[in-house]
Amino acid sequence: MIIPIVLGVLSITFLISHIVPGDAAQLMAGPRATPEIIERIRRESGLDRPLYVQFGMYISELFKGDLGKSILTRRPVLADIVDYFPATFELTTVAMLFTVIVGIPLGIISAVHKDKILDQLSRLGSVIGVSMPIFWLGLLLMLFFYVRLGILPGPGRITGEPPAHITGLFILDSVLTGNWRALVDSLSHLVMPAFVLGYAVLARVVRMMRSSMLDVFSQDYIQTARAKGLREGSVIRKHALRNALIPTLTVIGLSYGELLGGAVATELIFAWPGMAHYVVGSMRTLDFPAVMGVTLVIALVYILVNLLVDISYAFIDPRIRY
């Protein structure tokens, strides 16, 4: 199931990349290159072959684990992705944690106080998040917390020396190497971008949590538990929460795709050296081998995250077994 989808994604990107009115060979050669140089590059890179041959070449290389070379960096795209991916992964994961940690309680509050003022407030708050242009919020926050107040660090992933490279995830690397300065540094750099990004998908989680809680509340066993005289708090914790979490998890999985999309603007505004940032640069310069590589990886991550969500049902809901 995954392979045909990925192939589909790739062929569409490939098609789009070849209707572009920019000459890739010219691009590789750079300005003031002679026509002979351009012609040679075109031949060597196979850019003079028919489109389907080029696509075939790309796919066969792909199965050998080769994503091709970036036109601009002249480096293997895979190497570029290995460099840029951890930053994006760290950012989206922390943003997601933020969404879960804030969104689920808010959803519960909304459900418990259905249609009361707390419910309206929490929903309004989360709707503002989903309606906020990410890039605008990011700019405003940085101006306020970094320039005016100076209590949060500015753009970038880290101010001081990055931790020794193990995984490329700064948090993990600094924990592994016991580099607490780097840990604090990189965590504080994550606060604003993760908040901005997470806030954008918060509403979905709140909405889903609220409606599934309400759904659960109306079930017989909750009524029974209440009738037994259990306190409301323990009804929510012991009985309702678990069952309400499942649909919310699905939504969280789906939201991951949106986080990846939102990461584009977030990374630009916060000078975050991630993939989205890389892909915008590639797109602007029509460096399509790079664009293809990133699209592939993002599609894969998205599919995997949703697979993980499916599997995690089994832990929450004992009725589902894989």
Binding site: G8, V9, I16, S17, V279
Partner: peptide, 18 residues
């Protein structure tokens, strides 16, 4: 399915860039 698995903004960017 293919289009849903696509990161929407990135596809849109690619089309607009192209």
């Amino acid at each position: 399915d293919v289009f849903l698995a696509f990161p929407a903004l990135i596809l849109a960017m690619a089309i607009a860039a192209a």
